[in-house]
Design a binder for these strands. Structure first.
Lengths: 133, 133
DNA sequence: TATATTCCTACTATTCAGATAGGAATATAG
DNA sequence: CTATATTCCTATCTGAATAGTAGGAATATA
């Protein structure tokens, strides 16, 4: 229950890998090799991380990816949301009545509270914290 | 991300339904109708809840399901675990090295902490809290 | 021009959640 | 003893999502 997708786990490892190289950049192939991630699959992950502004990229020869911010300034929530979107235990967390049970959804506040708890945990930890163990 | 299965949501509603009838029992068909749950699907859910000791059942005519405990004594964690098993963000939360990345898994403690946070939230709330809104 | 890279689109394979179907076992009422 | 209402058990189907693959276009460097 509440399993984290392989994609998100790959994303965290890829970010950690980049965080370890202060200035240098790394190619997708290098990261894939270092972190045991299928290379082609990783490309799609890096694309999402870039779209969220967490990393930068250079195309062409000598291209690659690099951190866009200080690892201490990137929360785990940012990474998770970049890959899998917002945490949403049930569809009605955002809008009341947006689940199969309509406006009469007693458990709703319970799930909203859970979301807030998870969000807080993830927002409190940074990439630096996690990549250093 | 972190979507709760329909099964677990159904289970919570079914438990709430039973919690509202102090002594009486209800048949699967009655609960299904009251909570808009596919009747046959619900049977399997009630079976798990019974296996975990949260509800009791009587077979045959005039049979049905009823609460095995006081709703205030049933934590949401018990219900969730009865349906979907233990919370496990990554496979290596229980045993180090039990993920694809072996013993060298830096994010592990991060996920263990998340599991503990979620478990605590769920353990703190009871069926009574949730079913009353 | 050759090469190394990111980037984009489409496809495949596998798994799993959600649901359905049919009937066996069991209890009650008449 | 029979009809009926129920839980209980097993098998199957289906659609969506995840994980991964394939091929090549765009782009930058030497």
């Amino acid at each position: 229950m509440f399993a984290v997708s392989a994609r998100t786990q790959y994303a965290i490892r890829a970010m950690s890998c980049l965080a370890k190289r202060p200035d240098r950049s790394a190619t997708a192939a290098e990261i894939a090799l270092a972190e045991s991630i299928p290379a082609k699959y990783l490309e799609g992950i890096l694309s999402r991380l870039k779209a969220s502004g967490l990393i930068e990229s250079e195309r062409g020869k000598n291209g690659g990816y690099s951190m866009a911010k200080d690892p201490a300034a990137i929360s785990m929530l940012e990474i998770v949301e970049a890959i899998d979107g917002r945490i949403k235990p049930v569809t009605c967390v955002d809008a009341p009545g947006a689940c199969a049970f309509g406006g009469d959804c007693h458990p709703r506040n319970f799930w909203i509270g859970l979301k807030a708890t998870i969000d807080a945990y993830l927002a409190e930890r940074t990439l630096k914290d996690v990549s250093e163990g």
